[in-house]
């Protein structure tokens, strides 16, 4: 057992501040263990979400020393000895209390995405290689760290006109599904504002599931939007062939 120094944000919708704590820690612990330790021994009303503590549910998203991370997958031995560990709630979403934020906006966005709609008469036999791309995006555990770090939401607060990386990946998983018959490019361009993304890749950098959101979801989706709306030759061709 040794001690570490932590600063944890305490507050609610009216405001708050970082508070200092010394926490007992043991070998192999992660930041979430330290937070649990705090709850059990010093401040039982410290609010924080968590479920599986194994990096599979995406509940314990927070900002550890300024970086959006899952607390359950951030080992304490990553930090230098004597380093203060600062834990903040996600900045992009309104705070509820302490480390818990109101992420309901994400669920609203998801509702606005037309669900999986199989093509009529589709052949349900398809190969692994056709499943690969959709499966990558379906690894998403909805921790919303990509939404948190995306500057379009974080700094420019475009929540009314921009869906965010999580939902571009979700749309990509539907658009690249071999059986799905809907076309969501217009939605992507207008309602979900894919044009606001300037592909600065922070979403990919923070993804705990290592989904290559920018390269494999957003850029391919942008290219599909180009196909339909920005490529003059292609638009002409489509008009001529009546597509």
């Amino acid at each position: 057992m040794s001690k570490i120094h932590m600063r944890v944000y305490r507050g609610n919708s009216e405001g708050g501040q970082l508070k200092d704590y010394d926490v007992e820690v043991a070998e192999g612990m992660v930041v979430l263990d330290a937070i649990h330790n705090l709850q059990a021994t010093q401040t039982s009303d410290l609010a924080c979400r968590w479920n599986c503590k194994a990096g599979k549910c995406g509940s314990c998203s927070a900002e550890v020393n300024g970086k959006p991370r899952l607390m359950c997958m951030t080992r304490l031995n990553e930090f230098a000895e004597g380093e203060t560990i600062t834990v903040m709630p996600m900045k992009t979403f309104p705070i509820m209390k302490d480390l818990a934020t109101d992420v309901s906006w994400n669920y609203e966005v998801n509702k606005r995405i037309p669900p999986f709609t199989p093509r009529e008469g589709a052949d349900w036999h398809w190969e692994q290689r056709d499943a690969d791309r959709a499966q990558e995006f379906r690894k998403c555990i909805e921790c919303f760290l990509c939404q948190d770090t995306c500057h379009v939401l974080r700094e420019h607060d475009k929540k009314t006109s921009f869906a965010g990386p999580r939902f571009f990946a979700r749309i990509a998983s539907l658009e690249m599904h071999p059986i799905d018959g809907l076309d969501r490019t217009e939605l992507l361009k207008d309602q979900h504002g894919i044009g606001l993304c300037n592909i600065t890749r922070c979403c990919t950098e923070v993804c705990p599931e290592s989904i290559r959101i920018t390269d494999n979801a957003i850029i391919p989706m942008k290219e599909r939007v180009v196909d339909k709306y920005y490529d003059p030759l292609r638009i002409l061709w489509n008009k001529m062939t009546g597509k």
Binding site: W126, E127, Q128
Partner: peptide
């Protein structure tokens, strides 16, 4: 579940079934 959008791993025998 598959009809609702689940993407299961596929068989490798070329028949494209759920593995």
């Amino acid at each position: 579940l598959e009809k609702w959008g689940a993407v299961f791993d596929r068989t490798t025998d070329g028949k494209g079934n759920i593995n």
